[in-house]
């Protein structure tokens, strides 16, 4: 007699069919992938923006051509001299007329110079100081009264708060998705148990351990969840890639990488999420079956 496979002793292929459960788990994985992708993108964008904003220094010098306080040259030149000797200020550069026009054109039209307005000179620089730039502002006020100094620290804090709240939202979505996936597995398992009640009664009566029966349900749930989740994650990746491509102008190609170059963390989701779904399936099926078997003597 030929050796035979043990196969599907309980008939789980029919009772836990490969239709509804994988589709629902796949849908949950699709949402989870989008949520995680969103959180990662948010963190990437925020990191880039924070790095630029936090150190950005903007100095506005009103009436830049007028004499400075010491009557030793123009106000603009006096401010530039003060910035040049300050070790905490780097890359100071006066914004050109063309750059100024581009900056204010949304409000004043394409040729602000023709309006005859007295525009301040704008100097951009990088702030490398440990503290605030208030002392620098006071110094510049002395050589050029009315000069304004602004740093991006406040905006950086706001971006950080926004990032944290968006990541918290993503985490909440993940929790909800995990709970729904667990509920889907639990309902499918209970339905399978109801369908196989007589079979399980018989196998239980023949001496099957609760762990034997639970393990068979859990193995089936693992495969279904794994397959569904893998499919759902793979479906979501092109959408994430498309969103990354849309976001590329804000991040630079090195960060979110464009259409065919998603970050490794996102690509790893294709493996990590199905593994998590499989784990949820295994744990849920084990608990559901063992709980149900408690009703048997």
């Amino acid at each position: 007699m030929m050796a035979r496979r043990r196969g599907d002793l309980l008939g789980l292929r029919a009772a836990l069919a490969d239709r509804l459960l994988p589709v629902l788990v796949g849908a949950m994985s699709f949402l989870a992938t989008l949520a995680i992708g969103g959180a990662l993108a948010c963190a990437t964008l925020a990191a880039g923006w924070q790095g630029n904003i936090e150190t950005a220094l903007t100095i506005q010098v009103p009436q830049p051509g007028n004499p400075d306080a010491a009557n030793d040259g123009t106000r603009l030149a006096a401010v530039q001299r003060a910035l040049a000797v300050d070790p905490d200020v780097q890359n100071a550069a006066v914004m050109s007329t063309a750059e100024m026009n581009k900056l204010i054109s949304p409000w004043l039209g394409s040729d602000a110079a023709s309006l005859g307005l007295s525009l301040p000179a704008v100097i951009t620089a990088q702030w490398r100081g440990a503290g605030s730039a208030d002392t620098l502002g006071a110094q510049l006020q002395q050589v050029s009264p009315g000069t304004l100094v602004k740093t991006g620290a406040m905006w950086a804090q706001r971006v950080a708060a926004l990032t944290t709240s968006l990541q918290a939202c993503a985490l909440a979505v993940l929790l909800v998705v995990a709970l729904v996936a667990a509920a889907v597995v639990a309902v499918a398992t209970r339905s399978g148990l109801a369908q196989l009640r007589e079979t399980i009664d018989t196998v239980h009566g023949l001496g099957a351990l609760d762990s034997d029966i639970a393990a068979r349900f859990a193995a089936r749930a693992v495969w279904l969840a794994l397959g569904g989740s893998f499919g759902g994650t793979l479906l979501a990746l092109p959408i994430l890639a498309w969103l990354a491509w849309l976001a590329a102008p804000f991040t630079g190609p090195a960060r979110l990488g464009g259409f065919f170059n998603l970050p490794p963390a996102l690509l790893a989701l294709a493996l990590v999420l199905p593994a998590c779904a499989a784990l949820i399936g295994w744990i849920t099926a084990q608990f559901t079956v063992r709980g149900w078997l408690r009703h048997l003597p």
């Binding site: 002793l9 018989t202 001496g207 351990l209």
Partner: peptide, 27 residues
Amino acid sequence: REAAMLRRRIGVVYQDFRLLPQLDAYD
């Protein structure tokens, strides 16, 4: 667990047979 082990030492012929429909005679 002990009850399951005890059941393995008891052979039962049920009045309604209780054969598993998805398995053949051998299994």
